[in-house]
Amino acid sequence: MAIISFVLVNPKMELHDLIEQNNRLLLLMEHFNTGFTVADMTIEEICNSKGINPLLFASLCNLYNGYDKQLFEPQTIDDFNQLIDFLENSHRYYLDEMYPEIKHFIKKLSEINDTADIKMLDKFFESYFLEVKKHLEYEQKKVFPLFRLICNGGSDIPDLKKSKKISHSDIETKLADLKNLLLKHIKLVDKDGAKRKLLSAIFEFQFDLTIHSIIEDKILMPSIMKICK
């Protein structure tokens, strides 16, 4: 997914200025549990008050700003735990916010469009999200506890190569299909901006999911594999 580039973030920057430029950083702050009242504080100041590594925070801000070249490498147990906490919070966001929101707008459109395609789209989304739920549950119950065990130096570490592969590509492809069906093919009667709101929600979900995959596949997994060697 193409991400618009904003400023390259460092820990000395004031968070308020960065949010003004890219309000998607609010989502990142929510995943980090920093709260939103940032006053004139820099990333470093906010992070120090919350016990978050400022370099990790700034690095993920850069992902949200469209830079994915210089990725953060977690060094300490705290770094790993903060990354996993971040991912767990984003899972909650997908399950408790994105799913009901997308579902709500599909239902709204179904009420004013008694057509086979919107019914099928609803089914498509339902079965898609069932897969997402299973995937998140697997990560939540198996993968993340295993990662925490590994980076905390657990003595009985299972062979990671034998564990089920974490694949995000299917999830992202189906979401792209959902978006393309709505944007390119399915004509619907709209009311109260329901179609726009549905598309906006899908775009927001897709954006956060892309970042989520980068964190898991390119930051967390390689570092865990290094520890296991």
Binding site: D117, L121, T173, D177, L181
Partner: peptide
């Protein structure tokens, strides 16, 4: 559209 389910819709 890449997936089978998407193509069905």
């Amino acid at each position: 559209i890449r997936t089978l389910q998407g193509l069905t819709v």
